[in-house]
Design a protein around this nucleic acid. Sequence first.
DNA 1: TGCTTAGCGTCAACGGTTTGACAGGCGAAG
DNA 2: CTTCGCCTGTCAAACCGTTGACGCTAAGCA
Lengths: 227, 227
Amino acid sequence: MKYNILVVEDHSDISSIVSKYLDSEGYDNFVAKDGFEALEYFNSHECHLVILDIMMPGINGFEVLLEIRKTSDIPVIMLTAKTEEIDRLHGFDTGADDYVVKPFSVKELMKRVKAMLKRTYHEADEIIYSYKDLRLHTKSMKLYKEDKDVELTAVEFNLLFTLFKNKGQVLSREQLIDLSFGTNYEGYDRNIDSYIKRIRQKIEDDPKNPELLVMKYGAGYVFGGNE
Amino acid sequence: MKYNILVVEDHSDISSIVSKYLDSEGYDNFVAKDGFEALEYFNSHECHLVILDIMMPGINGFEVLLEIRKTSDIPVIMLTAKTEEIDRLHGFDTGADDYVVKPFSVKELMKRVKAMLKRTYHEADEIIYSYKDLRLHTKSMKLYKEDKDVELTAVEFNLLFTLFKNKGQVLSREQLIDLSFGTNYEGYDRNIDSYIKRIRQKIEDDPKNPELLVMKYGAGYVFGGNE
DNA sequence: TGCTTAGCGTCAACGGTTTGACAGGCGAAG
DNA sequence: CTTCGCCTGTCAAACCGTTGACGCTAAGCA
């Protein structure tokens, strides 16, 4: 699952570091410089978590949080400059989910983000996708074909996983990369061809004439959907 | 089981919120406004957990904790106003069980309370996990391989324990750390490699070609799951 | 046919994993 | 109080599977 995180922070030095780290952890993210921009983005995009500075010019963090809470239970991590009494009480009332006090280590913040996302969205439950004679087990990262065990590498697993999730849809190479490896994947479109090739050798009865994982000329690939 | 929680906090705004949340989680609770009142209550009522503010007029939190520790091992969660190293160290000496740094989210505090109560009173029963020729005894922290006693260190036991509990699942180093040693483990990812190596030498017939504790390239490790 | 896009085999480089060695910490034993 | 030995955490070097890139061939399309 690909998460999108909204960072609201007026100091660009801080926000750029946070954003960089979020990227490297594979999270999509958007930086808003003030409360106004934040709410505008929040109301028009899907977000899974908000990192929200309290001290900001214009609308402050609390007001943004209040506004968000009118429509959403999204997890919010507040950045507080000081352990001020006022901040604390305010935070209680407005319903932030966690606090990180400045100065903070980005690593610590990432840890909290990760923990919060996991807690909120219950990731990593065992899901078994199946199609025809294939069964994909998410926890063991294994694929079974006619009850026979097929070993997948991490890359193959991720790619096949997104194909399973979007069964019957034509996905461009670019889409496959974004969904499987994140937008910051450095590498070239045609690598997908290689991965597909390897996956086919593992799942197709006749890899030369693929039936499960089919190419759509000039567009990309489709998994399944030919009944 | 009905738990009773003593909250020691001089700011009534905070204590009332905490108390409200404890109520809604189904815990009995009593709010003491200062150390003196706290000790009086503690000595005349059955308590299962104490939430204790450090900064208080009169007797401070540390002194209260010291007094409590003369007669009791009850779990104590301290509320610290600042992330001062000194406070933290002080607390360790006097025997607090957990810390929550202000400003904190009540949800977070509730989570810790719940976890602490479970850990303390919901005593883990002896469970014997077995797989192939291995038997892991949780209480004695011992491992038997073909009825022969295998000595495990604390670290090895914890790690193998979580691997047993998640048999057949691929676990990342990070997951292994969080599940085995807690999220506040300060240490390098790759330590896991060393631990795994040591465990393998104890449980594998041929440690160079592991069959029980298998690496998943680029993902982590799996225990068992290959039938 | 001519042009573009996909398939496939190959292989070197990359990066993740294994391993042994070691130093400091910590607790047990004397 | 000191010694001793085991446990931990780190590191560097060797090792090995995977990946990414390339070039050629085959296939789609107009």
